[in-house]
Amino acid sequence: MADHITLRMKVNGEDRSVEVHPFARLLDVLREDLRLTGTKEGCGEGECGACTVLVDGRVVNSCLVPAAQVQGSEIVTVEGLAKGDELSPLQAAFVAHNGAQCGFCTPGMLVAATDLLNRCPNPTEDAVREGLAGNLCRCTGYSKILDAVHTAASGGEGK
């Protein structure tokens, strides 16, 4: 019924333009139209956080965002966290601490943790727990994720 729109976004620093239904989910635009499959669908109801991306510097559940609402926005996905081959400190800490097990929550978790450290460079344990509470993990019990975030926050040190 609706005409497709030309959706223009800056995705991971690159200008992208794609013809999509205005009510398409941002998640599907990223995964299917742009083939940025790092962003995952875990529930489709904004509960698990596997689809977390940054829109204009704020974390969102991309499964709950209609395409037309991100017209002209800046999007950062997990694919945008590393600088070339160099992992971000958080990514490196997730590898070092076994913060990723099955890896399916990891992209969303990393985006949420990146946002958390941007806003609060030295978070307390409770702040990390609250900051990541929208990202469910079924593998780790969260301890190794907390270790990784604290390590990245302290510039690679920590436990």
Binding site: G46, G49, T52, R58, V59, V60, N61, L64, V65, A112, D115, E130, G131, A133, G134, N135
Partner: peptide, 9 residues
Amino acid sequence: TGALAIQNR
């Protein structure tokens, strides 16, 4: 209300 990603939107 939900968690951060919900609160932002």
